[in-house]
């Protein structure tokens, strides 16, 4: 039986150009360029691959964010996703992972209404901006579905269950999960293909529905700043590292000797 899959994606700053205001310690968003979160490329690719593995399946992309998040959704379509949906609106601003998980779960429920059901949600391991890795498990918790994070391989998939490899510090666990389920995938899971010409055309043409708090029927006490248990009280640039020391000397042996002496002085070896 075909699967309905939803991939959660986010528009985040492109990593190379993070600008921090030295006075306030906060990000200069206006100075940065944005793209789909690099980790999401693997989630999108895995969704598209699973769709290809089970004929008749459908894969959608869902994002929560400012209106320009559409860019991440169009990128997902260019990479093979069938349809995309955006949750957006001032009420969602300031959402932490708790509130983000709730809003995305409500979006998934709405997609399930439209499509009949959703069997699988794929998140990336984390984003490159807030970098928490908490949204995948939070979505699973809000939906009340099994959740498995750090997934590095989908070994087997049917309409009833998944058999997964979950990375651990010293190897991997083989885990089976009944559907519907939420997984968070690692970079190791696949090699994303580039957007096809056909995909790019589809991305350009796609109409992306935008859902606000009212359309989603959310409990407003659970979204945005008000619904977020966590708040960022302060942001600062990390302390600068002390000036480094260039080990001088002629031969590699001399340099090695000096280095080892320094490390011994610091009781590191």
């Amino acid at each position: 039986m075909p699967l309905n899959i939803v991939v959660c994606v986010k528009l985040t700053p492109s990593t190379a150009n993070i600008e921090i205001d030295p006075a306030t310690g906060s990000l200069r968003r206006e100075k940065m360029s944005f793209a789909i979160n690099p980790f999401d490329e693997y989630a999108v690719e895995e969704g598209v691959r699973l769709k290809e593995r089970i004929p008749g399946s459908w894969v959608g992309a869902l994002s929560l964010g400012a209106p320009d998040s559409e860019a991440a959704l169009r990128e997902s379509i260019a990479r093979g996703v069938d349809e995309a949906f955006l949750i957006s609106g001032p009420a969602f601003e300031g959402s932490d992972t708790f509130a983000t998980g709730y809003a995305l779960a409500m979006g998934i429920k709405k997609i399930a209404q439209i499509k009949g059901r959703v069997d699988l949600v794929i998140c990336a391991k984390q984003t490159n901006d807030s970098d928490t890795g908490q949204v995948g498990p939070a979505v699973a918790a809000w939906l009340g579905w099994p959740g498995i994070s750090f997934v590095k391989k989908v070994e087997e998939v049917s309409d009833k269950f998944l058999r997964l490899h979950r990375m651990m510090e010293d190897g991997y666990d083989v885990i089976e999960a009944d559907l519907p389920a939420v997984i968070a995938v690692l970079k190791e899971i696949n090699e994303p293909r580039l957007a096809s010409l056909k995909g790019k055309m589809a991305a350009k043409k796609a109409a992306i529905p935008r859902w606000g708090a009212a359309e989603l029927g959310v409990d407003e006490s659970k979204i945005g700043r008000r619904g977020s248990p966590c708040a960022v009280a302060q942001q600062a640039a990390p302390p600068a590292r002390p000036q480094g020391h260039r080990i001088q000397g002629g031969s590699p042996q001399e340099k090695a000797k000096q280095l080892v002496e320094k490390l011994q002085e610091l009781k590191l070896i």
Partner: peptide, 8 residues
């Protein structure tokens, strides 16, 4: 609804 199969 999740089952541990094995550790590798």
């Amino acid at each position: 609804r999740t089952r541990f199969v094995q550790f590798v």
